[in-house]
């Protein structure tokens, strides 16, 4: 019988795992020339390896056409719910977007509709205290979106645990399934880029950061502690609809309904309780607020035509969107 716990047993397996190692082969050969029990042991392992390799090899199984169709249907539905509409977007339009000189004037980004749910009435079905941080960065010729949850870091923690979704470039009509019933929809529409996010969060603390670009928020339902970080200011959202434009030199917040509280980096605070506009300089100081046309509407149609709000955005290169999410 082979010696129990003989160190050569481990060497045997090492060798059979990677038989190309000449040092290992020489070592084993030398030992087995003198040890009958290890020769038998090695033969046993060799046969075991061969049998395992042969018997455990997966059968050449193929999915049925129905299974492929099911996967395709679900994947397409999850990733691209408006596929048919996106196919109608002219390809040269996308190319047009990415021309640097054009993008400076045309990138209109609308980020829409957060609906926060906080059902705290004891059912316990909603996860709590899972902060979601989202950042939006419009830079150069690309848009990237990064959504992440601070509590998980792996993509392998379950079907709903996708916590990092990054878009390297704008892809029209693309949606991403996010945790907790969130989804993002990117939409290319005429000569502007619309980005919408329809979300239902069961979050107690949420923040959103707008580095550069424009976002449109429309919130309804009970929600708390939602904060928008944008350049020099932090906007506390209290149930409202507003558009925010963050440029390098100025932040403009246009309130459509509800009210908002704006606190700048310098500690200054302004509140808008009626439709109007707040402008913040990059150093965190306020321009004087101006009344805004209350009739400016953001109809709840995702494919409403986009046009600049020329009535009051003097020289703002048409960044207002008549659209909502």
């Amino acid at each position: 019988m082979p010696e129990k716990n003989c160190p050569h047993q481990t060497l045997m397996q090492e060798f059979l795992d990677s038989p190309k190692s000449p040092e290992l082969a020489a070592q084993l050969h030398k030992h087995m020339a003198e040890c009958e029990s290890c020769r038998q042991e090695f033969a046993g392992f060799q046969q075991l390896f061969q049998s395992l390799d042969r018997v455990l090899r997966p059968p050449p199984l193929q999915p049925t056409p129905q299974q492929i169709a099911n996967i395709k249907k679900t994947v397409v539905a999850k990733s691209d719910p408006k596929k048919t509409q996106s196919a109608q977007v002219p390809e040269n339009l996308v190319a047009f977007f990415f021309k640097p000189f054009a993008i400076a004037g045309l990138i209109l980004l609308t980020l829409g509709s957060f609906v926060f749910f906080k059902n705290q009435q004891g059912t316990g079905q909603l996860p709590v205290e899972q902060p979601l941080h989202a950042s939006l960065d419009l830079a150069q010729n690309s848009v990237s979106l990064i959504f992440s949850s601070s509590t998980t870091s792996s993509a392998f923690e379950g079907e709903n645990a996708i916590n990092v979704a990054e878009l390297k470039a704008i892809k029209p009509e693309t949606s991403y399934q996010l945790p907790k019933d969130c989804s993002i929809l990117l939409r290319s529409h005429e000569n502007s880029i619309l980005l919408s996010k329809k979300a239902k969060f069961a979050l107690t603390t949420t923040s959103f950061e707008l580095h550069n670009g424009e976002a449109h928020f429309k919130l309804s339902g009970p929600h708390q502690n939602f904060k928008l970080l944008a350049g020099p200011a932090e906007v506390s959202v209290i149930g409202t609809e507003f558009v925010i434009q963050n440029n390098d030199d100025q932040l403009t917040i246009t309130l459509i309904s509800g009210h908002i509280l704006v606190k700048t980096k310098s500690g200054a605070i302004q509140q808008l309780v009626t439709p109007g506009q707040i402008q913040v300089r990059s150093d965190g100081t306020f321009f004087d607020s101006q009344p805004s046309a209350p009739e400016q509407s953001f109809p709840d149609k995702t494919h409403e035509s986009v046009k600049p709000d020329n009535s009051k955005s003097s020289g703002d290169s048409g960044r207002k969107l008549e659209n909502s999410f």
Partner: peptide, 17 residues
């Protein structure tokens, strides 16, 4: 079979990761 199908659905839905 069900989980295999789900695996591919999840993989391609989250291919960004």
């Amino acid at each position: 079979s069900d989980i295999t199908q789900e695996t591919f659905i999840v993989a391609f839905s989250k291919i960004d990761t």
